[in-house]
Amino acid sequence: MTETLPATAAKRRKATAAAHADPGSRGIERLAYLFVLPALALVVVFRIIPLIWGLGYSFTDYDGMSAPRFVGLDNYIGIAHDPVFLDSLVNMLILLATLPIWIGLPLVLAILIHQGVPGGKIFRAVYFFPAVLSSVIVGAIFNVLLRYDGSFNLFLKALGFSAVDWLGNSSTALFSLIAVQLWSTFGMSLLIFIAGLSTVSSEMLEAAKLDGAKLMQTWWYIVIPSIRPIIEFAAVVTTIGMLTSMFGLIYVLTAGGPGTSTILPEFLIWLEQGKMNRPGYASAISMVLFVMMAGLAAIQIRIMSRNADI
């Protein structure tokens, strides 16, 4: 990917030169703003301003009714001592620790499909299928499948294991939640990896094979390094997803329980703003979540703007 950078710069220069040659470019300038205005307005009104506004709320005791009163860092001190919030952080860290599986599993499958495993095209289509389903659909089905008398336990008993109350037990609920989310979304990374692998030169692979390199060696020393930027991108996007795309599944599969065992910060924000009616407090958690993902998002945006070639 790095060797394409000079080409990008050249293209950019050419585009700028062409811009100066544009007829009537001064006349269209004002109209150009009208074309971006709807998009810009929507984004600013519903996302940028609320972000700043939310930062303001996080320093108040806002309860949704009476006028917010400035309380300084009280909310932040409060969440630092809130056992539910701390539990949600621990749950999040456990989730984040599983990242290697979220990358490794689709990566291995993508390489196998790329290398021409029999039925590869079908596998690709089928693996991605759960990813198009709503987390509500996935959650509602798995809520039944993972019950004590559900299909999964039936399958385990057939293999000689004993049944487990996957969702009702606080030691297994989080892992069930993570596994279901992984099962339903690994197809996304799989597609990204397959797209990346199609850019790897096959001559290099053939040359390696002629040199007598083993299958695993070609993977490790040639295939994986050559799609490293794409693996990094997938890791960033997956991590952002872990922080901000679990709500639907939590809402339907476990509702955060039992106890606090499957509450993640994003779900806690929703609980605090709605059920607990503490919007000021919820805003403080929002800001913590924002800070946690801002660095990751900055990397994603940098990669995307580089790839957009503008």
Partner: peptide
């Protein structure tokens, strides 16, 4: 089209990608 602030506007729109609904839940 070429107009002043083009890149800035593109970046503002792209940056808002990192503001998911949970982060602005209350003010939204």
């Amino acid at each position: 089209l070429r107009f002043r602030g083009r890149r800035v506007i593109f970046m503002i729109i792209l940056v808002s990608l990192m503001i998911p609904v949970q982060v602005v839940l209350v003010p939204f």
